[in-house]
Design a protein around this nucleic acid. Sequence first.
DNA 1: ATTTTCTTGTGAAATATATCACAACAATAT
DNA 2: ATATTGTTGTGATATATTTCACAAGAAAAT
Lengths: 210, 210
Amino acid sequence: MNKKIPQPTVIRFCSIYQLLCNLEKEGVKKVSSAELEEKTGVPSHTIRKDISFIGEVGNTGSGYEVAKLKQHILNNLGLNRERKACIVGLGRLGSGIIQWPLLAEGEFRIVAGFDSNINTVETIKTSISVFPSHEIADVVKRMGIELGIIAVPPARAQEVADRLMEAGVKGIVNFAPAIIKSRRDDCFIRNMDIGGELRILSAMMGMRSQ
Amino acid sequence: MNKKIPQPTVIRFCSIYQLLCNLEKEGVKKVSSAELEEKTGVPSHTIRKDISFIGEVGNTGSGYEVAKLKQHILNNLGLNRERKACIVGLGRLGSGIIQWPLLAEGEFRIVAGFDSNINTVETIKTSISVFPSHEIADVVKRMGIELGIIAVPPARAQEVADRLMEAGVKGIVNFAPAIIKSRRDDCFIRNMDIGGELRILSAMMGMRSQ
DNA sequence: ATTTTCTTGTGAAATATATCACAACAATAT
DNA sequence: ATATTGTTGTGATATATTTCACAAGAAAAT
């Protein structure tokens, strides 16, 4: 236990964490690896193996306490500290993302939004501050923003990413349909390309077997 | 070559495909595996190995023809046929997704939108037909829709997914922050959880090494 | 024409990940 | 008390994926 957590395990944890939050909200106190399999599709032995990387947390015979497991994941993944995020591109998608219920309390907070043309920004009900894109460097540094979300057209995506990294952002989620590459090894990027996901599904459908 | 394409390879292809489209638009005719590494961060030998699964396509000494490689990926992944998609949940995020430039010509077409309360649907500039959610089964069957995009609140996500699968949808992209499970082995699901992605980034940042 | 420089494609080796199988133990039922 | 059932944690094994290393061939340079 507690050696080096494999990447696939980290990714599964981050997704199972959400499930645990939802279970907690429903008042569920305990859960077994078999129940987690039922709810996620991830085999129970894989889940147990995953959990074994962060130490012994379960109770032989009666499964895991939801709250305890949740906290354990948080601690071991270094998620027990709120991080500030910003979003670049406040068109329809960008403003939709802001209001999407994604900000688990205490985990993340979107504190700034940027757009090249601040006048055409969609009316936003949330109360984040909006700045013109050329102020990215200043604002990111000043506010201590660590995460960036990109929702600009593909042609501008890499340029925006470079500017964010330059300003010190350490993680980027990119929605633009363009592959974005990290030019620094201290910044990680997750590409969320809707078209790409649809393609993956189509390919899987065509191959008829997971 | 041409045996069974590994899943990670399929996923990389689907993302590299986007890059090839963009390169083609820029008028680039040829590209080498080293250049693809430069643009994607995927090592060149991995790219070459990937391509080897779909046959010999490159020219020793001078790399790959962009158009030819693109077409080859399309053919081998079974993407050379337009598939119809629908979207459930037309709030800000849902309507933002519709207008996002994701629909490569000839690949996908979003032909229907659903919302539980058709009156509160955001004004949409696109010309897709909008239906109340209880008509999902009818419309999906009638129009021959194969793909679904879910952008409803987390509590309703699994229920919507079940209804889509029931109606015959074979692939689902889920944006709701809730893990959705396929109850049929002929339907594939891709969860796109923004909160989860931010968590993955935070965890990677905390571990300081990919 | 010949050499040098690129580049692909791919078996083989190395690494990483997933699966299995079961001992150990708690909870529950008898 | 004892048996039965349920559940975790984990070495060992199997499988999958990535990386390496280099032969083979094209293009460019001399």
